[in-house]
Write a protein that binds this DNA or RNA. Sequence first.
DNA 1: GAGGTAATACTACTACGGTAGTAACGTCAA
DNA 2: TTGACGTTACTACCGTAGTAGTATTACCTC
Lengths: 128, 128
Amino acid sequence: MAKSKVYRLGDLQLRIMQILWQRAEAAVVEVHQALAGEGDWAYTTIATMLRKMEARGLVRHRLHERKFLYRPGVQAEEVTRKISTHFIDRLFEGSLADMIAHLLTTRQISREELTRLKALIAERKKKL
Amino acid sequence: MAKSKVYRLGDLQLRIMQILWQRAEAAVVEVHQALAGEGDWAYTTIATMLRKMEARGLVRHRLHERKFLYRPGVQAEEVTRKISTHFIDRLFEGSLADMIAHLLTTRQISREELTRLKALIAERKKKL
DNA sequence: GAGGTAATACTACTACGGTAGTAACGTCAA
DNA sequence: TTGACGTTACTACCGTAGTAGTATTACCTC
C-alpha cells in the first residue's frame, strides 16, 4: 500500500506534508503561499505535486467552494519514524546509540542543549 | 562540483561506498561479492553503478592486472555529516537536540545504551 | 451571454537511481 | 589459433521527484 516507501519522500513533498500537518487542511493556493520565500515554485508545480502525492496515498482532498482542500493521508509520526529508521539503518546499522554518539562528537551543540539531553536521558531511564 | 549533493546517495550507492571505505580499494567482483546476501544484484549492475558513481566523483579507479580497482572519491566523514545534516534539517529544523529528544522518546533503547549516552554527554560537556 | 478569472486536468520533459542485457576486447590454455 | 572466460563499455529501460506550460472547465459579473 501507499505507506510502504514513505521514507523516500523528496524535499518538496516533505515540505508540503509538513504544511498540511500544521494546518490540517489547505487549498493549493495556501500551500503555494506557505512555500513562497523558500523557493519560487510555480503554482501548477504545487498542484501537480499534490495530485501525484494523492496517487501515492500521501494526501487526500475534498471539494469545497470550487477548490480542492488537501489534508494529510499519513501521520507525521509515522513518516518521521520511518525516515528516521531508514536513516539510522543506512548510516549506523540501526543503532540509535551509535548515531547519537557519532553526532554528539561531530556536531556543534550548546551547553543548554546538553543539559536538556541529560535530563531527558535520566527521564527515559526511569521508564525502563 | 561532485560533492555538492552527496546527501542524496541512494541505498545501493551508499552500500558500495561503505564497502570501499572499509577496504580502501576493491575490484568490481569484490564489491559484488561483498553485497551478496543483501540482495542479488547482477554483476553488471554493480559495474554500471560504479561507472556512474565515478562520473559523479564519488569513486575513482585505477587499472591493475586487467581489473579496475575502485577506491573512494569522498570521505566517509563528509558523507555521513552531509546526510545527517540534511536529515536533521528536513525533519528537525536543524536542531540536533530536538532530533535526539524526539528519537529518545519514540524509539527503543536499552539501559546500557542510555548509560553510555549519559557518559558521552558528560564528556562532551567538559569540552565546551 | 460574453468575457474574465481561478481552479484543476493533461501532457511533457529532465535528472537520476536502479537494473541488467549484450557487445567488444584481451588473455590464456588447449 | 581458436575458443572460453573475465572484464569493461554501451545501451536501454523503469520509476519517481521535480518542474511547469497549456488546455479545459465552470462560475461570476457586467
